[in-house]
Amino acid sequence: MRALVQRVRQAKVTVAGRVTGEIGEGLMILVCAMAGDTDAKAAQLAQKIAKLRIFRDADDKMNRSILDTGGAALVVSQFTLAADTSRGNRPGFSTAAPPEEGERLYMRFSDDLRALGIQVENGEFGADMDVALVNQGPVTIWLDV
């Protein structure tokens, strides 16, 4: 699985004028299930992100995780993270999981984060979404598991 994680002050997803997910301080997580990914990969990614020490401590060092801060996560499916641009200018997405499997693993990942005690909000799988966020830092981390 692949994710782009951003530390945010706030984030919101809107679909057709309706807010589907909104958080204050925490993590904006764009996630993509890749072909061949498993439930174990979703769980591994959730564990990695939950323990990722990218929040400031009392000494202003990135030494705290979302578990430490009690922040929330806004999880949005993002198949374009699988983009392959090695053959020209039009990206290919053949390395992304098929849509049914991608949605299942996206929801599994979200449920795995919830099981760790993190408040999770979601976008809407397969929808045309408007995503707004205030990146704090900025801190943006790419993860592959």
Rank of each mutant, 00 (worst) to 15 (best):
F79G: 06
L113F: 09
R53N: 12
T14P: 09
C32I: 14
K12V: 05
G17N: 12
K12Y: 00
R108M: 13
A115G: 15
L74F: 05
P91K: 08
L133A: 14
I29W: 07
S94I: 02
A73H: 05
Q78S: 08
I23E: 04
V120D: 03
P91H: 06
V15M: 07
L52G: 08
E103C: 13
Q6T: 12
P99G: 06
S77D: 02
R114L: 04
L105Q: 08
E101N: 11
D84V: 02
F55P: 10
S86N: 14
I54A: 12
R53F: 13
A96G: 10
R2Y: 12
R90A: 11
L52F: 11
D111M: 03
A50I: 08
D68C: 08
Q78A: 04
N122Y: 00
G70A: 05
A82D: 04
I49Q: 05
D111F: 01
S86E: 03
E25W: 00
M129I: 00
A3T: 07
L81D: 01
G26L: 11
S110G: 14
V5N: 04
Q119R: 15
Q10P: 02
E124C: 11
G92N: 12
G26Y: 08
T14K: 13
F93W: 13
G123H: 07
V131M: 01
Y106T: 10
Q136A: 15
A42T: 12
E25F: 06
L67W: 03
Q78L: 07
L105F: 11
I29P: 03
G123V: 06
A96H: 07
F79W: 12
V120A: 01
R90M: 10
T69S: 11
L143T: 05
I118H: 07
V139S: 05
A97S: 14
C32F: 13
D59P: 00
Q47F: 03
S65V: 10
K51M: 09
R87L: 11
Q47W: 02
D57Y: 01
D111L: 09
G17S: 12
M62R: 12
C32L: 13
A43P: 02
R104A: 10
P138E: 03
A3R: 07
S86P: 00
G71I: 06
E22S: 14
L4D: 01
S77G: 06
V13W: 04
A96D: 10
V131T: 04
A35Q: 15
L27I: 06
L52E: 09
V139K: 02
T140N: 12
G88L: 03
L67S: 10
I29N: 07
G117E: 12
V8H: 02
M28V: 01
D111W: 00
A40F: 06
M28T: 00
E22I: 03
D84G: 06
